[in-house]
């Protein structure tokens, strides 16, 4: 039976799409979080570092306590702390955001590896979140397998999309965040505390990045290793631009990127004659191409990457 599989046969297409949904999970958490922070005007390049530390914390706590939920909580807490550190440097001390983010990344990479060495030391695995078939929905042919047979963190990641949309576009908090991101001086004159809004946005984004890490170490790979994320956080930052700061657009980007990745894996499995190095390149090329060819609706927060100092302008 496997002999008849081609890249366009139904089981393969189903497999690709199911993989895409699964692979998109960490990108979704992290990119939606980054979009919230950027909407308030703070570019956080340290996403990868937060993900790493979140992944480590989740894994370590789950390994020692046996509770996955405590692990998730730990990842969120670590995310919050990293968010506070980033805010302190970038908002209160008004540092160059690009560079403080790279610093944060290095700290996250270093501390997570260091703690891993000291506390765990070798490769171990946990029993992570099990696939959870949603009753009825998961029985739908094809669609059920693609969408409704995943583990809890996968569903949660997709749930953040409408939640973030609602939060940013439909609540007064969201409006404040956008106001601060587009015109901090005006927001300030209206009595909105720019710094406080930026702190909250960056921290919320960082908590989501922590969750992105946890989704890796507790659901997708069920282990921790030094530099587990391998640069996923940077891709997540790129996806924010792909999605034009809109959660739905980010979801589109994450799904596209992941689907192409899954596609190239299947091409290799099905022995399609193409050098693997070139196949691996596909997701990156197509993501650029898709953004280049799609009509751009992006509205970059005007004050992105600009520290706000009252009375400076």
């Amino acid at each position: 039976m496997p002999e008849q599989m081609t890249i366009f046969s139904l089981p393969v297409v189903t497999g690709i799409l199911a993989s895409a949904v699964r692979l998109a999970t960490p990108y979704l958490f992290a990119a939606v979080g980054e979009a919230i922070g950027q909407s308030s005007g703070v570019l956080n390049l340290g996403v990868d570092g937060i993900m790493l530390l979140g992944a480590y914390a989740a894994f370590f706590v789950a390994l020692t306590t046996g509770s996955l939920w405590l692990g998730v909580l730990a990842a969120m807490l670590v995310g919050l702390l990293m968010g506070l550190l980033m805010s302190l440097i970038s908002v209160t001390l008004k540092a160059e955001q690009g560079i403080s983010g790279i610093g944060l990344y290095m700290v996250g990479l270093g501390v997570s590896s260091l703690l891993f060495k000291v506390t765990i030391g070798t490769v171990k695995t946990v029993v992570g979140f099990k696939p959870l078939k949603i009753p009825l929905l998961s029985d739908i042919p094809v669609l059920g397998e693609i969408l409704f047979q995943h583990s809890l963190p996968v569903y949660a990641a997709f749930l953040t999309v409408p939640l973030a949309w609602w939060f940013l576009d439909r609540t007064s908090w969201g409006l404040k965040i956008k106001a601060v991101g587009h015109n901090p001086t005006a927001a300030d004159s209206l009595g909105v505390s720019v710094d406080r809004v930026r702190y909250a946005s960056v921290c919320l984004g960082a908590v989501l990045s922590g969750l992105a890490g946890a989704s890796l170490s507790l659901a997708l790979v069920n282990l921790f290793q030094e530099n587990l994320t391998a640069g996923m956080g940077f891709i997540a930052v790129a996806l924010v631009y792909f999605g034009g700061w809109r959660p739905v657009g980010i979801m589109g980007g994450a799904l596209l990127f992941s689907a192409v990745n899954a596609f190239q894996l299947w091409m290799q499995v099905l022995n399609v004659k193409i050098p693997s190095d070139l196949a691996v390149m596909l997701p990156y090329v197509l993501t650029i191409a898709a953004l280049a060819l799609a009509p751009s609706l992006a509205r970059q927060p005007t004050a992105l990457n600009k520290p706000f100092e009252r009375g400076e302008h």
Binding site: G49, L104, M106, L109, G110, L114
Partner: peptide, 8 residues
């Protein structure tokens, strides 16, 4: 890894 931490 300590080095990355300190440099960061």
């Amino acid at each position: 890894a300590l080095i990355d931490t300190v440099l960061g």
